[in-house]
Design a protein around this nucleic acid. Structure first.
Lengths: 141, 141
DNA sequence: TTTAAACATTACCTAAAAGGTTATGTTTAA
DNA sequence: TTAAACATAACCTTTTAGGTAATGTTTAAA
């Protein structure tokens, strides 16, 4: 599978995991192997992502046997942007929007403004959308 | 420089070249080495991009010594999307929007709908914006 | 106090894509 | 005939995505 998406698998997995944890009843937690299996993520990869989320204080964990992880942040305040950002989200529609980029074009380039604008629109939406509106719950069959 | 932008350098260069050619007076053309130099693109890379644009009938060329290239399409009808598409633009906000992707999640995943929606919004804008509104003209000093 | 099974953390690996360059044509005006 | 353009495919190198491997540390329960 070609990997040229706007968000990476890792970022997608982070959203899934956060949304799953947010749907757990209050006080409950789940261990990473089980969580990974439910969301079709490899255990080790899931573990590394959870670690990043913990460092960002989005999740927290209980160590030791019978330990597990749970959501620490308030899902009603936690935005998609917050989660993606934790996993190294760098929205750049075009290289010319990066700080270190030096555009050599002497003439006015209107493309630049277009990308700046579109990027801002998307970022604002990602900041507006909260995890509480994206809960992942298993269906009861 | 890290290369994790939404559009690639090659796609960016294609837009630049198209916008430059669109600004040429009617009937004029320019050779690729000169065009590449004006837009800070390597000659060979520019040549390959121009070739793709020609195959898509966006540009045309005059061969032989003193030959050159020019815009064939109507810049008022030529969209940013048309140009990007020629250079292999595959907008996919997330892998799960790809045809060949099979989402394993059994429960309703609202993230999917979010990406579908945002992607559609951006594509529609790229289709709406025409090259004629993005002309690249050198400033006269 | 031992041990199973969880979390914690870093180092490493591999395929593929980006971003080109090289090479070798073919065409045409002078 | 030749210089200088366009035409086109093949090749190359660096970086990144997307993991896996390895080795801890912690804690509940036997």
């Amino acid at each position: 599978m070609k990997r040229n998406s706007f968000i990476s698998r890792e970022q997608d997995y982070a959203l899934r995991m956060t949304a799953y944890l947010a749907a757990l009843p209050k006080g409950e937690f789940i261990n990473v192997p089980t969580l990974a299996q439910r969301l079709f993520i490899s255990q080790k990869f899931a573990s590394r992502i959870i670690h990043k989320l913990k460092k960002a204080k989005i999740t927290d964990s209980i160590q030791g046997k019978y330990g597990g992880v749970f959501l620490k942040a308030d899902p009603k305040k936690l935005s998609l942007y917050d989660v993606l950002n934790t996993i190294g989200f760098k929205v750049k529609f075009n290289d010319c929007l990066k700080k270190e980029f030096k555009c050599e074009l002497k003439f006015g380039c209107k493309f630049h403004a277009f990308w700046v604008n579109e990027e801002e629109i998307l970022i604002n939406k990602l900041k507006k959308e909260k995890i509480s509106d994206y809960l992942l719950k298993e269906k009861h069959n």
